[in-house]
Amino acid sequence: MKGATVMKGSSTSKRPLKKSAKFTEVQETLLKEGAAIYVDKKGVESLYIDFPYHVNYVHSYAQDSPFFLGLAEGKLRGTRCEPCKYTWATPRTHCQFCGEPTKWVELPLQGKVHSWTTCHYGSEAFLKETPYNLVIVEFEGANSVLLSRLKACTEEQIYVGMPIVAKFASEPKYLITDVWFEPAPGALKG
């Protein structure tokens, strides 16, 4: 962890602070100058400071590791509870219904759109990727579904039930985004 807490406010205190009656302007000023004053309709001044926070977590996938290692090999792994005859397309290493350990199984690399959306906005980390499509994928032989990205097609072309195929990143980043889906050959012609 580096730079977990840095307060920049006081370093700029020799210059007069910018004042604004617009909250968005105050936010912008903060990013550049570290401090600013918001003035409300009654003339009350509130002092704002920039207050950054950055953490590098040491994150283990722990019992989910086989799934993410599988993506790097071009495999989609789900889990199966034999007593419940239930296959999880998003793996759970213990069954939700009976609590027993599940076993790893390979899922087919093709499925269908169970639901979808096109995101025109996203949270800050993903804004630069917009617009992007999210898809919930259903697989033959699986009882639950998988959330993923749907690429190589536009908002107008997607429909519930569309056949899709899995694609894998050639350079794995060991994230869920190492797999995504695209329309199956011929699916866009319909």
Partner: peptide
């Protein structure tokens, strides 16, 4: 929006877009 989306599974859901409006859109489409 990112903070709110951290209230989704950070292994399987968040890295796909980290966006609650997207999750609710998926639900209402179905």
């Amino acid at each position: 929006n990112e903070f709110i989306a951290l209230a989704s599974d950070v292994n399987y859901d968040f890295p796909l877009g980290g966006f609650y409006s997207g999750y609710y859109a998926l639900m209402v489409v179905r």
